[in-house]
């Protein structure tokens, strides 16, 4: 025992710390953190017809004098042109509705899986994880064929005589909602499932023994205890959905304004790198609060794992 402790505090332990902590830290610092600093910098540059298409933030004017030019034009444009604010608010709204829809469908599913017999649980869970592994782009594409005006859904409804005219669903906000809920549903179910399987069902049994009806017991016991899972799942859906590009681009129409798509257009079509950067900074600022919430939950979760170990 003593020998082991000693070994842990000397050389190899230090080296192990350095490698285990240092290498991933270095990589993420260089390729994840530093880029944000550069985005902030370029959001303060001026667009230019050059390669790359922005002006330098600083230059040496003369010996010993450094001139820094911070151009707030991009941010002013974001504030003045209503289009950008509308896009941001509409992205938040779409993401919120989709998160609620995912919760409404995902919670019962996670509950059913978590309370199924052990043999079923493995299979059901695998079926939730499986689409998560197949191409996201292709799954969004699948909905194009279904929702088109001469697509599968309209063909079926027309032949059944339910409708007389094909429904226009593709390139409308409804298609975007369907696409986002479809793509992000597993992200809602998995944390909820993880949370619900840890729930002490003895509490429900006790409630039932005391004469509590299942619904009351659910509202009074299960729901409050699964709140961490609800919040984690909601954040995992909400945060990426706000910045979603592929779904509004392929399924949405001109009325669906989303900030991710706008950023893409500013960058690729308008070649306005500073404005795209300013949009990215704005989006980041909006997402900080939900992100911190998610981070908190992760820490609690991990503490519980550690408690269980000891």
């Amino acid at each position: 025992m003593m020998a082991r402790l000693q070994r842990l505090t000397t050389g190899p332990r230090q080296l192990s710390r350095l490698v285990n902590i240092g290498l991933p830290y270095l990589w993420l610092g260089l390729f994840f953190l530093l880029p944000f600093v550069i985005v902030l910098g370029i959001s303060l540059a001026e667009p230019a017809l050059a390669q790359p298409p922005y002006t330098a933030l600083w230059e040496w004017v003369e010996e010993g004098v450094l001139a820094i030019r911070l151009n707030l034009q991009s941010y002013l444009l974001l504030a003045e042109d209503e289009l950008y604010l509308t896009a941001l608010l509409s992205s938040l709204w779409i993401a919120l509705i989709c998160t609620l829809l995912c919760l409404l469908l995902g919670y019962p599913m996670a509950y059913a899986i978590a309370t199924a017999s052990e043999r079923w649980r493995v299979l059901l869970l695998m079926l939730i994880v499986l689409p998560f592994w197949t191409s996201f782009l292709i799954r969004v594409y699948a909905w194009m064929g279904i929702l088109k005006s001469n697509g599968i859904l309209n063909n079926v409804l027309l032949s059944l005589g339910v409708i007389e005219q094909p429904l226009q669903i593709l390139h409308t906000p409804l298609a975007v909602y369907i696409g986002i809920v479809y793509s992000y549903l597993p992200f809602m179910i998995l944390p909820l499932y993880a949370n619900l399987t840890r729930l002490d069902f003895g509490l429900l049994e006790a409630a039932a023994d005391l004469g509590c009806r299942p619904w009351r017991a659910f509202l009074a016991v299960t729901l409050p205890l699964s709140l961490p899972g609800i919040i984690a799942g909601s954040m995992l859906v909400f945060i990426p959905a706000v910045g979603e590009f592929v779904i509004p681009d392929l399924l949405g129409g001109p009325q669906t304004l989303m900030v991710g798509k706008m950023l893409w257009t500013e960058f690729f079509s308008n070649k306005d790198w500073p404005l795209a950067s300013a949009l990215a900074i704005l989006l980041l600022a909006v997402l900080v609060v939900p992100f911190v919430l998610l981070q908190r939950l992760e820490e609690n979760w991990e503490r519980r794992l550690e408690d269980e170990r000891s």
Partner: peptide, 26 residues
Amino acid sequence: FELLLTAPLVMPDVIIGLSLLLLFVA
């Protein structure tokens, strides 16, 4: 460290893509 490890899981792709491109250009 944990923050840097969680962020890429949820960060919208457009932000990661843009920021890395700007890093590579710089």
